[in-house]
Amino acid sequence: MSPDELAVTICIVIAVYSAVRIALERNTLKKLPFLNVVSFAVTGVIAIILPHPLTILAAAAYFVGSTLESNAIASTIAGGPEEKDE
């Protein structure tokens, strides 16, 4: 097994583990850290399976989009979107 394959295997195993933790966790706010781990792992997988300069942009777009989504969900639960809109 080459170093690339080992790294991508570790990433995907951690992503599946975090998805299982999301399924088992009952509290909505405490699911968000596990969702963050899933997006870290998937960003790593995207970068490893296709090494091309545009992949940096795709990985960054995916990561920022997923973070924005978590931010919006947490802010809506905490009391509505009016604080984050300007």
Partner: peptide
């Protein structure tokens, strides 16, 4: 590889 395919399918 197969592990990644299976993992993404599981997700």
């Amino acid at each position: 590889n197969e592990v990644v395919t299976a993992g993404c399918a599981l997700l």
